[in-house]
């Protein structure tokens, strides 16, 4: 790797993305207020979107912002505000002594191991998948066409399965959020 120079721009983009992602992620963990955590989450999500753009996944970057920032985090914020859990949400007493250290150790070791494995394995660059039949990955609008083709051929079944997934999620959410008066009276 040493001796190869990367364009300043690419490095800069990487650093920006990495900063956004990591600062945001640490923010989610460290911040006490859930609204602030949600905002940190948005930061990470944007960082990921930047990283997507840098890796010529423009379409996904846009979808990332629309789905995550535009819907998921809004939903989070909605629930936080709706339930009014925003201000008093601190870190609670740990139920098991040393759980945090243990989790940290476990996760740390796993991630370190992963990084070592990532670094030490040379993946098969150029292994062509069935889907593109060896055609190189396009950028820009060609990319959308490729994505669309893949979704409706190789991943057709998966795509149809998402329909089931969304139906069950919507029905589930409504069943859960539904409030039945008879029951509330009983609870009260």
């Amino acid at each position: 790797m040493i001796g190869v120079s990367y364009s300043i721009g690419a490095v800069l983009v990487f650093v920006t993305a990495a900063l956004l992602i990591l600062v945001g992620a640490v923010g989610v963990l460290a911040v006490r207020n859930p609204v602030h955590a949600a905002m940190s989450l948005i930061m990470t999500l944007f960082g990921v979107a930047v990283a997507f753009v840098a890796q010529s996944a423009d379409f996904l970057a846009a979808v990332q912002v629309i789905v995550y920032a535009g819907a998921i985090v809004v939903l989070f914020l909605f629930v936080i505000m709706f339930l009014g859990v925003d201000r008093r949400e601190g870190v609670r007493v740990e139920p098991l002594v040393g759980q945090r250290a243990l989790a940290g150790l476990g996760v740390g070791l796993t991630v370190a191991g992963l990084i070592v494995l990532l670094a030490r394995s040379h993946w098969v660059s150029g292994a062509m998948s069935v889907s593109t039949n060896g055609a190189p990955l396009a950028t820009g609008s060609g990319n959308v066409a490729q994505l669309g083709t893949a979704v409706f051929t190789t991943y057709l079944y998966a795509f149809e399965a998402t329909a089931a997934l969304l139906v069950i999620a919507v029905v589930g959410a409504i069943v859960l959020a539904r409030r039945e008066r008879a029951l509330d009276e009983e609870a009260a």
């Binding site: 423009d58 379409f59 970057a61 846009a62 979808v63 629309i66 920032a69 535009g70 990319n143 959308v144």
Partner: peptide, 9 residues
């Protein structure tokens, strides 16, 4: 190329 998605975003 994703113009209209940008608008949605």
């Amino acid at each position: 190329p994703m113009g209209i998605l940008l608008m949605l975003a």
